[in-house]
């Protein structure tokens, strides 16, 4: 069973369109959804979670069509963390635990209490007095305390200091040790995703420009630095993005389509994303 299947998903808002998004996330895999602010990451997550309906296409999560009433039950197997905690600010972590105990059929109060302790979150302090990092850790503790098979995280590390970000990424790594657990995590911090993900999806202006296994992307693409004249000899179909400078041309190329004699540097995920976005501009 696939964790997430999305087929030709469309959603239109005034001034924004999410166009024909299709991808499949196998069970046990971690997908990083990358994209600039306003690229449509949160809209895609809302569609995948059935919070809003699509204008076209379909999505299924853990084998259930998200538009069907049964999906409410399926959400028992999904942990959700949004860009802000979105909990009533006047509550505390203990009250929140009681609410989730009535929400999830497999809520594990002991696991929640031990996560609160591990993450140094006070039980009786009001959420409104938590820092952003504490609120995100609380959201993560709640999402990890009901034996979820899939975690959906929308920008969980945005605006956090590197230490908290690292702590959150460690927790996510722990979560995925079991093979049947999958993660969809969106972020515009590519380095976070590079550490964690098996698959990368790059959403740009409502369009899915890229979806592939991370290792294959790093294997398939390379950076070349050439003079303007040498660059003319590179087959156009090999070029995915170009950056022109005073001293020549830097381009992201498909390794297999470029003459082996040309020196190609190993690239990073961040470079791939940036060049794909530049390619779109050019």
């Amino acid at each position: 069973m696939n964790a997430i299947e999305v087929r030709r998903l469309k959603k239109t808002y005034p001034g924004f369109e999410l166009r024909d998004i299709s991808f499949t996330l196998p069970e046990g895999a971690i997908l990083g959804l990358v994209g600039e602010n306003g690229a449509g990451k949160s809209t895609l997550i809302r569609l995948i979670m059935g919070a809003t309906g699509p204008d076209g296409g379909e999505a299924s999560v853990l084998g259930t069509d998200v538009g069907r009433p049964e999906f409410t039950k399926t959400k028992d197997d999904i942990g959700v963390v949004l860009d802000e905690a979105h909990f009533p600010p006047s509550l505390n972590a203990l009250e929140l635990g009681r609410i989730f105990a009535d929400t999830y059929t497999r809520w594990d109060g002991e696991a929640y209490a031990s996560l609160l302790e591990k993450l140094e979150l006070p039980g009786k302090k009001k959420i409104k007095d938590f820092s952003r990092g504490m609120r995100m850790k609380l959201a993560l503790a709640a999402a990890l305390s009901h034996d979820a098979k899939l975690l959906v995280l929308d920008e969980p590390t945005g605006g956090l200091d590197p230490m908290v970000r690292d702590e959150i990424l460690d927790i996510l790594e722990d979560f995925t040790r079991r093979e049947d657990r999958s993660v969809l995590i969106s972020s515009h911090i590519v380095s976070d995703l590079e550490k964690l993900c098996d698959y990368i999806a790059f959403l740009h202006k409502g369009e899915l420009l890229l979806f592939d296994e991370k290792d294959r992307l790093l294997e398939e693409y390379a950076l070349v630095k050439l003079s303007e004249r040498d660059f003319e000899d590179i087959p156009k179909e090999a070029v995915r993005g170009v950056r022109r400078g005073k001293y020549g041309v830097e381009a992201l190329v498909e390794r297999g389509l470029v003459d082996r004699a040309i020196t190609a540097e190993r690239t990073s995920l961040e470079d791939i994303i940036v060049f794909f976005a530049r390619g779109d501009r050019e």
Binding site: A51, K73, K75, D76, V80, L82, E84, H86, F87, T103
Partner: peptide
Amino acid sequence: ALDEQSRWDDLALMLPYS
């Protein structure tokens, strides 16, 4: 109003509530 303010309503749509 408080649900909208804290955006609990956005989260609740993704939790196992119909």
